[in-house]
């Protein structure tokens, strides 16, 4: 059930020039949240920033009762969030959204291909953890602008996930974007279910690629939103045949066929 929680900050750590990882003590949420779901964070009690900040759950430890959020400092809210220290707390609403659809455990030959662009890595660690727990062979393809922005690769490797990287400037891994990286990987005849998160242009290119290869894909989308509860109707994505779906309640995870990017 969606609830409001005051969550104590356990850790708020800078991982890259503009990427931070926030660890929260919030047992009741940690015990029910699923990969791909998100929370709405109220960073301050002032009116500026006014709205909550939607952040996907990056990692979750149900036993320890903690969740981690990965965020990029892009606006007033996220900059203010980066200034909070352990001991402080934030109010969060969640769990919100649908989350990824996971395959049944030990489904034969079902490989998972996680595809991340930039901060799109955020929801994929928690997903990888659950996939690995289900004995699904999982590979991460991860692209960023430059080497310094590739964050948290160790955490994937510790789970036994094979990681391949690329950067726009070639400072680490293949020089190019993550869709090219995936296309190269698929040339060897490999296949798998795609789980992706990243900027819209990346997802649009990825949509073309998975269609041409006949692969199933789920996209976690980002959208500007006010409430996260399905009330403001601010966070829409176009759907085939006209009209819109709501990223907060119909998503944020969509099968690639369900959206017009």
């Amino acid at each position: 059930m969606i609830s409001s929680y005051d969550a104590a900050i356990l850790e708020n750590q800078q991982l890259a020039p503009s990427i931070w990882r926030l660890q929260l003590d919030v047992a009741a949420l940690a015990q029910q949240v699923r990969p791909g779901q998100f929370v709405q964070v109220r960073v301050t009690n002032t009116y500026d920033p006014f709205l909550r900040t939607p952040l996907s759950v990056h990692d979750c430890d149900a036993k320890a009762g903690t969740i981690a959020l990965l965020y990029q400092t892009v606006g007033t809210s996220t900059h203010a969030l980066s200034r909070l220290r352990p001991g402080a707390s934030v109010n969060i609403l969640g769990p919100l959204g649908n989350g990824f659809t996971l395959p049944p455990a030990r489904s034969n030959g079902n490989f998972a291909l996680l595809v991340a662009g930039g901060i799109g890595i955020a929801p994929l660690l928690f997903l990888a953890r659950e996939l690995v727990a289900k004995k699904v062979s999982t590979r991460l393809l991860y692209g960023a602008r430059t080497a310094a922005d590739l964050t948290g690769i160790d955490a994937f490797e510790q789970l036994g996930v094979a990681v391949a990287c690329c950067t726009d400037d070639g400072s680490q891994g293949l020089k190019g974007n993550v869709v090219d990286l995936l296309a190269g990987y698929l040339q060897s005849g490999a296949a798998g279910d795609v789980y992706a998160c990243g900027p819209t242009p990346m997802l649009r290119a990825l949509q073309q690629l998975v269609r041409s290869k006949g692969l199933a894909a789920q996209f976690s989308l980002e959208a500007y939103m006010a409430c996260g509860l399905g009330a403001c109707l601010g966070c829409v994505v176009a759907v085939p045949g006209g009209g819109y779906a709501h990223v907060c309640t119909d998503g944020p995870v969509f099968k690639e066929r369900e959206v017009e990017l």
Partner: peptide, 23 residues
């Protein structure tokens, strides 16, 4: 009504703008 094309909401100083379009 389907409503307006996105972006439909934006945060402003101590408030927000919306153009939902009566979806």
């Amino acid at each position: 009504r389907a409503g307006n094309p996105p972006q439909r909401v934006v945060e402003t100083a101590a408030g927000m703008l919306n153009s939902i379009g009566l979806e």
